[in-house]
């Protein structure tokens, strides 16, 4: 978490300097994805009154869409609705700021009622060699702990909450357990956290109905370059050394190795 704070600070600084968020293609636009996390309910999604997602099924992820910054009104209806006049969820207003990246999630609240949340995705630059893991609790379930391997990495995550951490790129064995326990209610499942990618894992469904599941979203292009290429150790190839005797010593050492090898060869020949 400390690493993330540092990365966030650095990105904030860059933002202040340039007035642009690095990963955003267009400073006037926001990126929006939509995840359907309400089980057993195929829906239509209306944006500002216009049908935008037709027959959107549970576990589907739409987007990303590049949208001009502004406030969008989203209504979710049954899939056979004629229009958005009788939404099953919403209408809700989504204020989208330029340069930001969002995911709107239709999901169950802790008590199992449909609700919607707008999450802001962390698209700040990741350190070379690292990826970002975001975990979001959008399931009808009490507070949970997120386990990587066997140990909790995020504790006490409540419905609607998220946890974010940067970690070395690789595969994480992720599981979700009730807070304070280590007995998984979801997983364990291998999740790839790729370098320079924000891998967002959603826990969704209902504990009571036994349909908890994971959904995965990725946002790439957050990488940064290594800070250098340290590709020499001895100074033998130096054009001009600041300490010439070192080169002499290194050459002598190398010559000594060569001499030893030659002697060995000679010795073999003598046998």
């Amino acid at each position: 978490m400390r690493k993330r704070l540092i990365a966030g600070t650095a990105a904030g600084f860059a933002l202040a300097l340039t007035g642009a968020v690095p990963a955003a293609a267009d400073s006037h636009e926001a990126q929006l994805s939509v995840l359907h996390g309400v089980p057993d309910l195929t829906v239509d999604v209306y944006v500002n009154g216009d049908l935008t997602l037709d027959d959107f099924e549970p576990g589907d992820l739409a987007g990303p869409l590049a949208l001009p910054a502004g406030t969008y009104t989203v209504a979710i209806t049954a899939a056979d609705a004629a229009d958005d006049s009788e939404p099953v969820l919403g209408p809700i207003d989504l204020p989208l700021e330029a340069g930001m990246n969002y995911t709107a999630v239709a999901h169950l609240d802790a008590d199992g009622a449909p609700t919607a949340a707008l999450f802001t995705n962390d698209i700040s630059t990741t350190a070379a060699g690292e990826g970002r893991l975001t975990v979001r609790h959008t399931a009808a379930a009490p507070e949970v702990d997120i386990l990587a391997g066997d140990s909790p990495v995020l504790e006490g995550v409540a419905n609607g909450d998220e946890g974010v951490l940067d970690l070395p790129a690789g595969t994480v064995s992720a599981a979700v357990a009730a807070a304070g326990t280590t007995d998984p209610v979801i997983g364990p499942a291998d999740v790839t956290v790729a370098e320079g990618v924000n891998t967002i894992v959603y826990a969704w469904g209902s504990l009571e109905d036994g349909n908890l599941d994971l959904a995965i979203q990725t946002i790439d292009g957050l990488h940064s370059a290594p800070s250098g290429v340290p590709s020499g150790e001895l100074g033998l190839a130096a054009q001009q050394s600041s300490t010439p005797w070192v080169v002499g010593a290194a050459l002598l050492a190398a010559a000594g190795v060569a001499f030893a090898v030659r002697r060995q060869t000679v010795a073999v020949k003598n046998d």
Partner: peptide
């Protein structure tokens, strides 16, 4: 009632449409 579009998994409606309407 608006005419239903053919049920098609790949969404035929476009964000651009929504934006245009917006």
């Amino acid at each position: 009632p608006r005419p239903r579009r053919t049920p098609h998994r790949a969404l035929r409606t476009a964000a651009a449409t929504a934006l245009g309407a917006l």
